[in-house]
Simulated scan of single mutants.
Amino acid sequence: MRKLSGIFLVGLCVGAIGAVAVTVSHGAAPQAVAVAETVTTPSGTPTPTPTAEPEPKPTPEPEKKAETKAEPAPSQELGARVDAATLDKLVRGGNVSAVVFDRQSGKTTVSVHPDRDYTSASLVKLLIALSTLERGGPVADVQRMLSRSDDDLASRFWTSYGGTSIVTQWVRKLGLTGTRPPADPGRWGDTQITAPDVVKIYQYLLDHGPKAILAALRAATERGSDGFRQYFGIPDAAGGRAWAVKQGWSCCRPTRMLHTSGVLGDDSRYIVVVLTEHPAGVDYATASRRVTDVVAKLLG
């Protein structure tokens, strides 16, 4: 602050004291007052007090337009445009059957050669697992049998928990129409199956089956206990979708079987079953690629 003359300062103080005395004597409540202050420069020329600028008026917000949301495109059903001829070309010289069931809509979206029957290979392990757990068998070993497709464990459970009666029990319980036990009671892998029946087995597993079975299918290892790479088909074609699978492979009586089955997508929405039979001259690597191509075509 600049220096002021003594006389002026004394006068200013006396005036202020008087103003306070008057205010107190009237007993009025203090109020906030805007004061315009004038400062005197050394030359005695008063500096004009800056005038208060008018408060800016708020700018009215532009009127919001009603948002229009685009209608969502109708969902494409999985595999809805796939036909038998397309899949047959992918499995040259062999046979293919495919069924896709949408659990959300309750509809079968793909049904290609559904009545063909195949040797089950390891897909019958789903029924072996159900019977074993139903009768109090070891959960951890059942899960290992499924996730690693362990044949030794499957043979042990097959013998201990009913043999061919395992198949006939679940045929009656689930209403399977194309499934029958093997002609040779000791060869569980020769159980006969169809794609629609495998779908029914998964429907039961999802709605009523022990959770340990689906947990094992979600934890399927890339290689089975025999070293075979079992990520062909659904796992290789899933493209980031969640999956749980049971795979099957066998050779050569007299042909090569390669099957992929399981559930796919959020909340296991789709049940996907692809059963294939290849000439013995088609190696496993080629057959595996063909099965993956079939599933990729189903997924669009």
Score class of each variant (00 low, 15 high):
residue 109 T to D: 11
residue 109 T to I: 12
residue 112 V to K: 08
residue 112 V to D: 02
residue 114 P to M: 09
residue 115 D to K: 14
residue 120 S to P: 12
residue 121 A to Y: 10
residue 121 A to S: 05
residue 122 S to K: 02
residue 123 L to E: 07
residue 124 V to G: 01
residue 127 L to K: 06
residue 130 L to F: 00
residue 131 S to A: 14
residue 131 S to N: 14
residue 133 L to F: 14
residue 134 E to P: 08
residue 134 E to G: 11
residue 136 G to S: 14
residue 137 G to C: 04
residue 138 P to I: 11
residue 139 V to I: 09
residue 141 D to K: 14
residue 142 V to G: 02
residue 142 V to N: 04
residue 143 Q to L: 10
residue 145 M to D: 04
residue 146 L to I: 11
residue 148 R to L: 12
residue 149 S to L: 03
residue 150 D to E: 10
residue 150 D to Q: 10
residue 151 D to M: 00
residue 153 L to T: 06
residue 154 A to F: 10
residue 155 S to E: 08
residue 157 F to L: 06
residue 157 F to K: 05
residue 159 T to E: 13
residue 159 T to S: 12
residue 160 S to W: 14
residue 160 S to E: 15
residue 161 Y to W: 10
residue 161 Y to R: 04
residue 162 G to V: 09
residue 164 T to A: 15
residue 165 S to G: 08
residue 167 V to Q: 12
residue 167 V to I: 12
residue 168 T to Y: 10
residue 169 Q to R: 10
residue 171 V to I: 03
residue 171 V to F: 01
residue 173 K to W: 02
residue 173 K to I: 02
residue 173 K to T: 13
residue 173 K to E: 13
residue 174 L to G: 11
residue 175 G to E: 15
residue 176 L to M: 07
residue 180 R to V: 03
residue 182 P to Y: 12
residue 184 D to C: 08
residue 189 G to F: 04
residue 189 G to E: 06
residue 189 G to D: 09
